[in-house]
């Protein structure tokens, strides 16, 4: 794809009010902070002119430099030097590529912006070319599922969720999980999550459990999220957000994994009833999957270790320690 050389384009002064206010079909800027750019222009002036395209009705759309125009408007400039191309000189795809290469030369695109690029390219460029040329350019793995995910991300996620993603308040994995939901369900789950401020790991657990429970209990997610037990945690004035997050996850986990949680509780109870020496502790393997439990003894010298071992041999009820579910199976 040949891209027109823009060096010979003469710049002209354009009234910013005549430039359309939204990013338009070529710009791929999302979730940016305009202040540093505005400060820089305020100090050293405008180094590179934005590039615009004019249609037959004399309407101007930004090809390159949307952020700059935005900053200049904030600074109150009433004339902006811009390069202006006519729509007869350059095709929409060329405009798109001008913007893409201009951006890639100066900064890294965030995930939402990558989605914007791929979404726009996919209506104009053969899929094979997107996979082979543009995905590596965006530092993305060249495969169909990734391409489809980024296109969906752009098309289906609400602006607020995109903002959370760009601000790294949710992970790409969380965005992926949210995208698998119907739009209504997604906004219920997202609103709940953002009100409680789960960390990234907690977000995955929360979504996993809430989706599983909705299927298992055959209830819509919003009904689950509105249950009194969850509401009570949300409005509890005595706990802060991290405590609420923990409490919610604990509640959901207990409901999703009743036997596992019961076994964990029973094991903990049994161990704490054993009156072990203070320097000794007993641990279960993750999910009780490995057959062995672990005894941990802290000591400074052999004599102390010996004493602990002696006390352990005298510990009553140690013989009964075993798989906590044995009587239930």
């Amino acid at each position: 794809m040949g891209i027109p050389k823009i060096t010979p384009i003469k710049s002209q002064l354009v009234n910013p009010n005549k430039i359309e206010d939204f990013p338009g079909p070529y710009c791929m800027s999302f979730g940016f902070d305009i202040r540093p750019l505005a400060q820089s222009i305020d100090r050293v002036g405008l180094v590179n002119c934005p590039l615009l395209i004019e249609n037959k009705n004399a309407e101007l759309t930004v090809i390159v430099g949307y952020r700059r125009i935005h900053a200049l408007k904030t600074l109150g400039w009433d004339r902006i030097p811009c390069g202006v191309l006519s729509e007869f000189e350059v095709s929409p795809l060329e405009c798109l590529l001008l913007n893409l290469y201009d951006n890639l030369a100066t900064r890294k695109l965030n995930e939402v912006e990558k989605g914007m690029v791929l979404n726009r390219l996919h209506s104009q460029v053969p899929r094979k070319e997107i996979l082979e040329v543009y995905m590596p350019l965006l530092e993305l793995p060249s495969n169909e599922p990734t391409l489809l995910f980024f296109i969906k991300l752009e098309q289906e996620l609400d602006t607020e969720i995109k903002e959370y993603l760009v601000q790294k308040k949710i992970s790409l994995q969380t965005a992926k999980m949210l995208l698998k939901m119907e739009s209504d369900e997604r906004s219920h789950v997202f609103n709940f999550m953002s009100s409680i401020k789960f960390n990234i790991n907690q977000q995955k657990q929360f979504i996993d459990n809430i989706i599983d429970l909705a299927v298992i209990e055959n209830k819509p997610t919003h009904e689950l999220l509105n249950e009194p037990s969850l509401k009570a945690i949300l409005v509890n004035k005595h706990s802060n957000n991290p405590q609420k997050a923990q409490a919610i996850l604990k509640l959901l986990r207990g409901r999703r994994f009743p036997s596992l949680v019961k076994a964990e509780k029973a094991f903990k109870k049994k161990v704490s009833s054993l009156d072990l020496p203070k320097s000794a502790s007993i641990h279960a393997p993750p999910y009780f999957e490995e057959p062995h439990y672990r005894l941990e003894v802290l000591f400074r010298e052999g004599k102390e270790l010996k004493e602990t071992i002696n006390r352990l041999t005298l510990t009553e009820d140690l013989d009964d320690l075993g798989d906590p579910w044995e009587k239930d199976v």
Partner: peptide
């Protein structure tokens, strides 16, 4: 089939 209590095995 996904309703059960699945854990990550060894």
């Amino acid at each position: 089939v996904l309703d059960g209590e699945f854990i990550t095995g060894l």
